[in-house]
Structures are given as C-alpha cells and as structure tokens.
Amino acid sequence: MKRFLLFLLLGPAVGFAVFELREIASGRIIGGFPGFIMGLPFAYWFGLIPSLVMWLEDWFLEDKMRLWPKVLTSALTGYVVSIGMMLIWTSVSIPLRQILTFGIVGAVQGLVCSWLSGIKPKGGAL
C-alpha cells in the first residue's frame, strides 16, 4: 500500500517539479506563480497513467531485484513511459531534443518513488 500511495500521490508532484525546473532552465516560464499553481492539477491528470505503469513495474520487481538495480529500472521505465505519454497526448510536432529531455521528468519521478518505496525500517520498528 505504501508503494502505491508513493507512486500515485508523490510521483506526479515530483514529476511536475522536475518539469518546472526543466522549463526554467530552458528559459520558458509560463504564467509565473499562478501558472505553477494552476499546472499542478494537470500534472496529476497527465501523470496518473505513467505513475501507475511505474508502480506496476516497481511492484513486480520488488522481490526479484535488490534496491538499486530496481531503482535504476524504475528510472528507465519512467523515462520511456513519460516520452510515450507525451507523444500520445501532444498533437503538434516536437523537436527530438525536447522529447528526449522530457524523459528526465519520468526518470526522476520513477527513481525517487522506487527508492522511497524500497526503504525498509531499521530494527523492529514498524
């Protein structure tokens, strides 16, 4: 249940933060602070399916891999899924460089969520 909630609730927020950092780094700030606040619901709307795919992959590999290989596969899955979703949702042609850099959004999202879901409590703590 912890894994599902991490990917579902935290995943799109992390992805949106990385997306905004990517936009700021490229000099494209749309709407300032109000645009940031208004963009957050859209991040959850468009980030839901990629988050569920990353959660499913992470859940499937939970007992088959150690933590860091699983985290890296989740980052790779997030990279591919976010590019796929962007290509599905957009109706305009996008330069290849923008497509490839957009994958970083899903990669960081998958990496963070997979890493947090793999942390086990120390000792006998619940």
Rank of each mutant, 00 (worst) to 15 (best):
M1H: 11
K2H: 14
R3M: 13
F4H: 05
L5W: 14
L5Y: 14
L8V: 15
L8W: 14
L9P: 11
A13F: 15
A13Q: 05
A13Y: 10
A13M: 13
V14Y: 10
G15M: 10
F16M: 05
V18P: 07
V18I: 15
F19T: 03
F19N: 06
E20V: 15
E20P: 03
E20F: 15
L21Y: 07
E23N: 14
E23H: 09
I24L: 14
A25F: 14
S26A: 11
S26R: 11
G27M: 06
I29S: 05
I29K: 02
G31F: 11
G31A: 10
G31N: 06
G32R: 11
P34Y: 11
P34R: 09
G35M: 09
I37L: 14
I37A: 12
I37N: 02
M38L: 13
M38K: 07
G39Q: 05
G39S: 09
G39I: 13
P41R: 12
P41T: 12
F42A: 07
F42E: 00
F46N: 02
F46L: 12
L48A: 08
P50F: 08
P50H: 03
S51R: 01
S51E: 00
L52H: 03
M54P: 05
W55T: 05
W55G: 04
W55E: 01
E57N: 06
F60M: 07
F60H: 12
L61Q: 05
E62S: 14
D63C: 08
K64T: 13
K64S: 13
M65F: 15
M65V: 10
L67H: 09
L67G: 03
K70L: 15
V71S: 04
V71Q: 03
L72K: 05
L72N: 03
T73H: 08
S74F: 11
A75M: 09
A75V: 12
A75N: 03
A75G: 14
T77H: 09
G78L: 10
G78K: 04
Y79H: 08
Y79V: 12
Y79K: 05
V80G: 06
V80N: 00
V81E: 00
S82I: 10
S82A: 11
I83S: 02
I83Q: 01
I83N: 02
G84S: 13
G84R: 03
M85I: 06
M86G: 14
L87M: 14
L87V: 13
I88Y: 14
T90V: 15
T90W: 08
S91Y: 12
S91D: 08
S91V: 15
I94D: 00
I94L: 12
I94F: 07
L96N: 00
R97G: 10
Q98P: 01
I99G: 03
I99Y: 04
L100I: 04
L100R: 01
L100H: 02
T101Q: 01
T101Y: 08
G103R: 04
V105C: 04
G106I: 11
G106Q: 00
G106Y: 07
A107M: 03
A107Q: 00
V108S: 05
V108N: 00
G110Q: 02
G110A: 09
G110M: 04
V112C: 05
S114I: 13
S114M: 09
W115F: 15
W115V: 08
W115N: 01
W115H: 07
L116Y: 02
S117L: 08
I119L: 13
K120E: 07
P121I: 10
K122H: 10
G123N: 02
A125Y: 09
